[in-house]
Design a protein around this nucleic acid. Structure first.
Length: 267
DNA sequence: ATGGTAGTCAAACTA
């Protein structure tokens, strides 16, 4: 089984590229983040025509996560228990955002995750990010406590660079989110709960990234960040036979600022 | 030159 994750930065502006990529990538399950649309705007017919079942959650032009699967799509869950809420404006009741979607695909519990950005080190959004990751750690860790053989994949845009060589120049990030110790500790918490970065062994650094900012010629300068991850439970990690980051997809007009991350699993 | 790009939705916000 081949599993992939991709922050597409708007599915409506990217649907042609995603479709073309699916047609040549032989992917069984694709998790999407930042679809930036409501459910009724998601172009599910385009993917159904390629043989994929589709699940999506999106409430507005922000966030939005989806799962495409041609190996079954059942037990769809919108959000995870205890997922924190967020309100962008004072006076507006906080609500759960479209940042997590889970389903069973080919016997694997796959979660498409779009971790909150954090924005700046002093922004309340950073606290929201940390609380969101802590809630994920608690519940994903709980699944493993209940079933040590559980096949779970936590995939998506984590908005964290866990190690210094996951960014092109750590000195540029001294006052930035994504590399701060609290964020890295939150990421480590998920790892220590039993989830492993299954891609890194097949894509060793330094200089290997999944995201390049649109500005400042970051991509041609090879100035990126490794912030998109596939974290596997022990039973899933055992099945991994290969992985790659499809850097080619960051090239050309109409590219997302993230590249797809692909993992191969033994049957 | 005090910016630089891209997306959503049409001024400002998010990344």
């Amino acid at each position: 089984m081949r599993l992939a994750t991709w922050n597409v930065n708007s599915i409506r502006s990217r649907v042609d590229r995603v479709e073309a990529w699916l047609q040549r990538s032989d992917v069984d399950v694709l998790a999407l983040q930042e679809t930036k649309c409501k459910d009724e705007q998601f172009p599910e017919d385009r993917f159904r025509a390629l043989g994929y079942d589709v699940a999506h959650v999106g409430h507005s032009q922000w966030n939005g996560v989806a799962l495409l699967s041609r190996v079954g799509l059942s037990d769809v869950q919108v959000g995870f228990p205890g997922m924190p809420s967020w309100s962008s404006k004072e006076g507006v009741e906080p609500a759960q955002e479209a940042r997590a979607l889970g389903a069973t695909c080919g016997g694997v519990q796959v979660w498409s995750l779009y971790v909150p950005n954090g924005r700046t080190l002093t922004d309340p959004h950073l606290q929201y990010k940390l609380e969101w990751l802590e809630a994920l750690r608690v519940h994903a860790g709980g699944w493993l406590s209940e079933d040590t053989e559980a096949q779970v994949a936590l995939v998506g845009d984590w908005n964290i660079a866990p190690q210094d060589d996951d960014v092109w120049d750590i000195s540029v990030f001294s006052s930035s989110t994504h590399v701060s110790e609290p964020e890295r500790a939150a990421f480590r918490g998920v790892v220590e709960a039993g989830f492993t970065d299954v891609v890194r062994p097949y894509t060793p650094g330094p200089g290997v990234y999944t995201y390049w900012d649109y500005t400042q010629l970051r991509f041609p300068r090879r100035e990126g960040m490794r912030i998109d991850f596939v974290l596997g439970s022990p039973a899933l990690t055992q099945r991994v036979t290969g992985a790659r980051i499809d850097r080619e997809e960051r090239k050309g007009k109409g590219a997302s600022d993230h590249a797809p991350v692909v993992v191969d699993l033994a049957d």
